[in-house]
């Protein structure tokens, strides 16, 4: 348990200390959301209607941008060799590192989402459900990104390949994430069914993704 906590604390600290990781993800999210209204024009009704989709797509892309760091740095400086020889099974190491990515990147992204929602004229009443849905869905974003990050270990400029591998896995998260928010804008309110499905997606990926990541890491360490 101590070993897992030590690893979690180290990864969160590194993500903040090394700059780049968290700052770039937040900055990217901000830029994507800011340029969207510029491209679409000043139709406030249109913006409000598509805001949930834009906010989710921006969040997924910003999360992907920093996903390569989950394992890459540790692979390149030999840290993964030592982590693999530690007291924790490799799948737990992978899971803890994805959890650290969620804490260090996922949560800050969720926290600035309401601010960005203002720029897209999302009705204020739907902000709580947006945040709730994002909090429930972002663990899946981090853990699924972990699969892509571990599969592309050791490849140069793996960012795009990582996106190709992982974006299809994000489709359910995107669909249910958006459908938890849009009813507030367009029609009858139904937060709970999509919210519960998001929770299920996150829980399933928290259990299954580390196993896949561990297998991919083991292969990369050979």
């Amino acid at each position: 348990m101590n070993a897992a906590l030590a690893l979690l604390a180290r990864d969160v600290k590194l993500a903040w200390r090394e700059g780049g990781a968290v700052g770039v993800a937040l900055g990217f999210y901000l830029v994507v959301i800011v340029i969207t209204p510029l491209g679409l024009g000043p139709d406030l009704n249109l913006l409000g209607r598509i805001a949930p989709g834009i906010l989710w797509v921006g969040l997924l892309l910003a999360g992907l941008l920093s996903a390569g760091r989950i394992f890459d740095n540790d692979y390149e400086d030999g840290t993964l060799d030592v982590l693999a020889a530690g007291p924790l099974p490799l799948s737990v190491v992978a899971g803890v590192k994805c959890l650290a990515h969620w804490l260090a990147t996922g949560i800050p992204l969720v926290l600035i989402a309401p601010l960005l929602a203002l720029l897209l004229n999302l009705p204020m009443g739907s902000v709580p459900s947006l945040m709730l849905a994002m909090l429930a869905g972002t663990p899946a974003v981090s853990f699924l990104a972990g699969i892509g990050a571990s599969l592309t270990l050791g490849l140069r400029r793996s960012g795009l390949l990582l996106a190709l591998l992982v974006v299809p896995l994000y489709v359910p998260v995107l669909i249910f994430g958006v459908s938890a928010v849009t009813p507030y804008v367009t029609g009858p309110n139904s937060l709970w069914p999509p919210f519960l499905i998001l929770c299920a997606l996150s829980l399933a990926s928290m259990v299954l993704a580390p196993l896949a990541s561990a297998a991919a890491i083991r292969n990369a360490l050979r």
Partner: peptide, 18 residues
């Protein structure tokens, strides 16, 4: 055996930000 051993390879496994 991995948990009984220290492997110090060519890479130093040092975090430059720490």
């Amino acid at each position: 055996i991995a948990e009984l051993s220290h492997y110090v390879g060519h890479l130093n496994a040092a975090k430059t930000a720490f």
